[in-house]
Design a protein around this nucleic acid. Structure first.
Lengths: 340, 340
DNA sequence: GACTGGCACTCGTTACAGTCGAGTGCCAGG
DNA sequence: CCTGGCACTCGACTGTAACGAGTGCCAGTC
């Protein structure tokens, strides 16, 4: 199964042409558009081998060749280099991201930017709570038996939750609770909080014990169990580009998948070491997305990773370009987060 | 141009049949499925009149009739009664909405519920800040020159914003600022805050003056100017039901419109008196949505309205059913909000 | 041994003609 | 005013034929 250099060049040419024209590419067109230095007949022989090996296929007998998922995989792994971004793109990124006033703003701008630059569907995960630390916990009395618990994380995320207290609690006690809770939890990683919350209950003075117990339950629910990952999405209209050719005529499964946060988190949230990840077609574990590819990476201030972002589109996508854009955007967002 | 009762009955029958079958309906099929008591020929004469008046049209010469936007309008205004919800639907609503722990949760559950019940795209506006009152303002020191401003509204919404201070501010002063700000603003409607904020600056003690000025700027920006309306969306996959017949083959314009929050707010946010609003086809001001209809209404605790919600779908939709569902869900959500 | 030109073959696409039938408009009669 | 009948329209479907892009294979050449 040796694939010599020319066969690889042929595969690369097929992928590039197909991505840009969206039409099966034949041997003749190929030699015309690329300087392969050989005749169509030779290319045909190479194509036959590539097809045998499963890298390309013919939609119909009398049509040109189209890359298979496996072909894209080889292309991405060995045949493409990450395109450097154009200065215009760099400027677009900077212009888009400066002036963001809070985390919501950063995430929204980022997701729109990604969608616009790649012309694909963009997905951005909010900084994961599990990877954040508690900056401050605030307790706001709503009534004598109700508190609003507000947690501010170092990543800028703010979560709130209403707490129904077992009985009336005077304002002074709320102040005490606030102090105790912050002394114990401020600065802690959210994933480390359960034992601390436990300790909080045990160490609470007797008159605060019942309230603290309730509070602890809510704390654990909100901060740990519920995990409360959030996702922003943009550019779904880009799915309709390329007519109905991509996604074999129905956007349905894709749109359904995009509504499932769990699915999206799996796609872009698995932050392995900070490399960029590319999932092509059926490499994807979700049936609904077997016609789609995902390019994703982690982002975060400095070297730490607090969330993922990426783009989703047809397997017929510009991988080098999208990989470059996703990386660049992730880096800029990381810098932005590091600043605050 | 008198339309007698039978002609109206014919129009109603056409709308109902077309909505359920998705196919142009002819005179013969009509008399078979509805007890009109007359022959197909008579129905044809009625149809000719209805067509002349612009209530129905023929897609092709030899096809049946299809309602026009105007026909749907007449149907909605005069020919349909709001369907009572089935007990199953009522149960579904209750089951879906109980157990919501915070505002985000309420909104997300609501929008998914609406999408599921109506099988259309559902849109829910978060309680509008302009219609909310300040419950509490919290200032959390991030560093000596940075504060996190957190506003909790009576509707449950929480907004935060980072404030860059002109110079270092000791913790005691933050406490003072917090007290001053809350004394002045707590309980005020957000739309009434600008003069109050102005007063805050003027009345601030000299040593807090510069800080308060900065804070005031951010307060106005965050609470008033930015307006910060939020929207939740669900059920976009429902757009693909009915194949490509609805929306004349392209979801593109619809998906684009759904990404524009401004557009969505205009659609469901115009809370006139608390009636349900129906926008049919080209009654809509956005070109992208000329093939769509929107059913929306306001919701809020008790009689006040704090936001809008609704569904969007093809003009060929079940208006009576969707109107009933939208109303019912809005009422339930209102009750839920009133409880807290 | 690798490449090339030539050629027969496949098969999807397009065009065209013909048939079918749903649905209509109109009219004369009840 | 309603009805049955009838001629008419026109889209949907079917079958045939021509077309052409693209292929696989093979014999010949460097």
């Amino acid at each position: 199964m040796g694939l010599d250099d020319r066969k690889l060049a042929v595969l690369r040419a097929i992928v590039e042409d197909y991505v840009s024209t969206q039409e099966p590419v034949g041997s003749k067109a190929l030699v015309e558009r690329h300087q392969l230095g050989v005749s169509p007949a030779t290319v045909r022989n190479d194509m036959a081998v590539l097809e045998e090996e499963g890298y390309i296929r013919q939609p119909h007998t009398s049509a040109g060749r189209v890359p298979t998922d496996r072909g894209y995989r080889l292309f991405v792994d060995r045949l493409s280099r990450v395109k450097p971004l154009s200065p215009a793109e760099r400027r677009a990124i900077e212009r888009f991201l400066v002036g963001a006033v809070d985390l919501d703003d950063v995430v929204h701008r980022t997701v729109r930017l990604l969608a616009q630059l790649t012309r694909q569907v963009a997905v951005v995960q909010y900084p994961s709570l599990a990877r954040s630390s508690v900056r401050h916990l605030e307790l706001v009395p709503i009534s004598t038996t109700r508190l609003m618990l507000v947690m501010i994380a170092d990543t800028g995320r703010v979560e709130q939750r209403l707490v129904e207290l077992p009985g009336p609690v005077p304002a002074d006690n709320v102040t005490d609770l606030r102090r105790l809770v912050n002394e114990k939890l401020a600065g802690a990683r959210l994933s480390d909080t359960p034992p601390l919350v436990q300790a909080l209950v045990e160490e609470a003075p007797a008159e605060l014990r019942p309230t603290m117990t309730t509070l602890a339950t809510v704390l654990l629910e909100t901060l740990v169990e519920r995990h409360e990952e959030r996702i922003a999405l943009a550019g779904t209209a880009n799915l309709t580009r390329g007519g109905l050719l991509d996604f074999q005529g129905s956007l349905r499964p894709i749109l359904e998948a995009l509504e499932e946060e769990v699915v999206l988190l799996k796609l872009i949230g698995e932050t392995e070491p900070s490399t960029t990840r590319v999932l092509i077609g059926d490499e994807n574990e979700f049936d609904n997305l077997r016609a789609a590819s995902v390019v994703s990476t982690g982002y975060g201030p400095g070297a730490t990773i607090v969330g993922g972002l990426g783009v989703l589109g047809p397997t017929r996508m510009d991988y080098p370009g999208n990989i470059a854009t996703v990386r660049a955007v992730a880096r800029y967002v990381g810098e932005l987060l590091a600043q605050n």
